[in-house]
Design a protein around this nucleic acid. Structure first.
Lengths: 120, 120
DNA sequence: ACGATGCGCAACCGATGGTTGCGCATCCGC
DNA sequence: GCGGATGCGCAACCATCGGTTGCGCATCGT
């Protein structure tokens, strides 16, 4: 049934909308610092820093110190794991509600045409 | 039109591991009450009741009073929306990961082909 | 050398997931 | 019909978390 400890950490990590956006930004730009990310987010540097700490703890990102800055970038393999988690839960529900799968896909199509990615 | 309010509510609703399990149980057994669910969960009835209230508020489940009991069941259409949310985020990241991998492979071969395909 | 920049630590606040305790309504056995 | 068991909601309370502000320290640039 899913829900191991690691899985749960990944879930809670990507469950936060701010963290999702941060991952998105990091993926888009390759890397970033707490300060650079905070400039593109509606939260303060400290909040971003905390989120980065969380993401770092679960291994979704890792930092590389460069002088007085800390450059973060996404760990692709770990993110792939997280994506697999999403898919797993979706599939689990889908397995029980296979008949609504088509409906979900239709909705997804609509959403994809509306928003390809996030901007806020 | 990225994260609308409703979408965000859906995310936070399914983001909680207890609520995910509750949805799972409800799907498995068709319906359930706060008490019946709490017997299968490591939390108290009140906690379950609160979660049910949250899920009810975002429309993922709805209750049907029966005597002194309140039977809940999953709203399939709304759950389909939620699954679509998961898939959408997963697809977005997945697509970007694929792009990164391709880019990395291309960089390795750039010495020869020089086919820079960085859309971004 | 000194100001600007980037960061971490600490204190604090509001929301939330969780608990316990209580009271009320409904059902069941007598 | 009465009383206990059952199911629920409300309220108080606690811990955690996302967020803020404030401060101090290290590094960079002139």
């Amino acid at each position: 049934m899913s829900a191991t400890a690691v899985d749960d950490d990944l879930w809670s990590a990507i469950g936060d909308p701010t963290r999702r956006t941060m991952i998105d930004l990091l993926l888009r730009e390759g890397n970033g610092t707490a300060t650079s990310l905070s400039e593109r987010l509606p939260v303060t540097r400290q909040a971003v820093s905390k989120h980065l700490a969380v993401l770092d703890r679960v291994g979704l990102v890792h930092a590389s110190p460069a002088g007085r800055e800390r450059h973060f970038q996404v760990d692709e393999a770990q993110l792939a794991r997280a994506v697999a988690q999403l898919a797993a839960v979706g599939d689990a529900w889908d397995a029980r509600l296979r008949r609504i799968k088509r409906l979900a896909e239709q909705i997804q199509q609509t959403q994809n045409t509306q928003n390809t990615n996030e901007g806020e």
